[in-house]
């Protein structure tokens, strides 16, 4: 017998090779979304209205101005940021897991010229699209409530896509190691919920001790998303750790690009390892 040409571990870490075919996977998810658009649309529309009415008008009446703005104006950009976070995170945890594990959709697509990497990348791009859709709905509500004071808000749907891609990539890392669907309770409660409250969303981070501010800006991605949505909608950014916007905004942008790139590559590799034995 000839010497077998033993390959190194087939699951070695690589930069994924992607082609236009990722869009056929994205397109599949869009088609399904459009079939059920009524169910998808209404909750995303209703939720920000409730938040603005309850917290903005209701609770906001008892709260003093923040950075010279009414509380509702402080809150509105955070709702856009939260929509970016939830949109892709839930899509690429629960929904992707159902497609992968229960429906075997990834296996079926992998028998075609679309590669496993492209399937995962298509899912990530779709997650980012969900963030864009959800954030845009919230943005329309915010505009209709008259809470926009800067023309930069027009860039937010595009930003939502990239912010969504980051959360999608992080979510997909959890999906790659999830043994069952209930597993996602962990990231939901241990990762999303702390972010929901500690990223300068419902109250200024500057009200917290320096240590909490430092943690928020180092490890909580939502902090950076909020910085940018707030800058784009209200034209003001909270001086976290005493930094002014000229320094803070570039830090947020660089942080987001670096973290997105890292988790995008990592999640595809982890999923490939899970899907191909």
């Amino acid at each position: 017998m000839s010497q077998p040409n033993l390959r190194k571990s087939p699951a070695k870490f690589t930069i994924p090779k992607l082609s236009y075919r990722v869009w056929s996977v994205w397109r599949r998810n869009l088609d399904v979304f459009l079939k059920t658009i009524a169910v998808n649309f209404l909750p995303s529309l209703l939720e920000p209205i409730l938040y603005l009415v309850a917290f903005g008008f209701g609770l906001g009446g008892f709260i003093q101005e923040i950075n010279g703005q009414p509380y509702i104006n402080f809150l509105a950009p955070a709702l856009v940021a939260i929509a970016i976070m939830y949109g892709s995170f839930f899509e690429c945890t629960y929904s992707s897991f159902v497609r992968m594990y229960f429906q075997k959709t990834f296996d079926a697509i992998a028998t075609t010229p679309v590669s496993v990497e492209e399937v995962v990348a298509g899912e990530l791009l779709w997650g980012a699209t969900r963030s864009t859709i959800n954030a845009s709905i919230v943005l329309v509500v915010v505009v209709l409530f008259g809470l926009v004071t800067s023309p930069l808000f027009l860039f937010l749907p595009v930003f939502a896509f990239f912010g969504g891609l980051m959360f999608a990539s992080m979510a997909m890392c959890f999906t790659s190691i999830a043994p069952h669907v209930d597993f996602f309770n962990y990231p939901s409660f241990l990762f999303l919920t702390p972010m929901l409250f500690l990223s300068g969303t419902f109250f200024p981070l500057t009200a917290m001790p320096q240590a909490v501010q430092a943690i928020a800006i180092t490890v909580l991605p939502l902090t950076h998303i909020v910085n940018i949505t707030r800058g784009a909608i209200s034209g003001s950014v909270e001086p976290i750790l005493g930094l002014n916007p000229e320094i803070l905004l570039p830090i947020s942008i660089i942080w987001l690009i670096a973290v997105t790139a890292f988790f995008f590559v990592l999640s595809i590799n982890l999923m490939k390892k899970r899907l191909i034995a």
Partner: peptide, 28 residues
């Protein structure tokens, strides 16, 4: 290559004919 795997991995989010047309799209 055409593959008919052992397990049912039809796409439950789609109708019968869409299962074919969506699959065709993956082949361009």
């Amino acid at each position: 290559v055409g593959v008919a795997p052992q397990e049912d991995n039809l796409d439950p989010d789609f109708s019968v004919i869409q299962n074919l047309t969506v699959h065709a799209r993956y082949f361009d």
